[in-house]
């Protein structure tokens, strides 16, 4: 099942490669989070030395990872939809409807990206830091903004492909 690509053609292969790469980076981040927690747990248990602010690193890591996953989920049509009532309609109609929803989702993702950019600016301006250690938090917002932008572009690309009857 994994080998089959949802989107044929060179453009779609490029889109899928990019989003898959971003998703893998997110997955590696997830593994790093798991390693960090395990190290902190072991340190706390064996040597009374937990990693300071470990739970905050978990939050940041998971937050960024989820943003990195979104474009891939989008491109793989991974969001759950109910097709029970529309099964009888021609495939082209359904593809067009799906494309419209992709555009709606793209609008939200674009807005989220923009919101995170301004969130990063404000966080920078207000010198916001992590709770337990004084590291600035704005780069996290900036990274998430970038990833949301990738998801926005991914959703647009999928919509274009579906309108073109290629998906």
């Amino acid at each position: 099942m994994e080998a089959q690509s949802g989107l044929p053609g060179r453009f779609s292969r490029t889109v899928e490669t990019i989003t898959a790469t971003v998703a893998i980076v997110g997955g590696i981040l997830l593994l790093i989070v798991a390693g960090l927690v395990t190290t902190s747990v072991a340190g706390r248990w064996l040597f009374s030395k937990p990693i300071p602010a470990d739970y905050e690193f978990v939050e940041i890591g998971i937050g960024v990872a989820v943003f990195a996953f979104l474009p891939y989920t989008q491109v793989r049509s991974g969001h759950i939809a109910v097709d029970t009532f529309t099964q009888r309609l021609p495939a082209r109609v359904n593809a067009a409807v799906d494309a419209v929803w992709d555009l709606v989702l793209a609008a939200f993702l674009g807005f989220f990206a923009w919101g995170l950019v301004s969130g990063a600016q404000e966080s920078f301006q207000y010198n916001e830091t992590m709770v337990q250690i004084s590291w600035p938090i704005w780069p996290v917002y900036a990274i998430c903004a970038g990833l949301a932008a990738v998801a926005f572009l991914g959703a647009l690309a999928v919509a274009v492909l579906k309108f073109g009857g290629r998906a």
């Binding site: 997830l30 939050e59 998971i62 937050g63 989820v66 995170l116």
Partner: peptide, 21 residues
């Protein structure tokens, strides 16, 4: 505005991707 990040960056929900992995 920044609610997406705040919702995703949840310590409690971190078990979801970890257990899926």
């Amino acid at each position: 505005q920044t609610n997406t990040y705040r919702q995703f960056a949840s310590y409690t929900l971190s078990v979801i991707p970890l257990f899926i992995l």
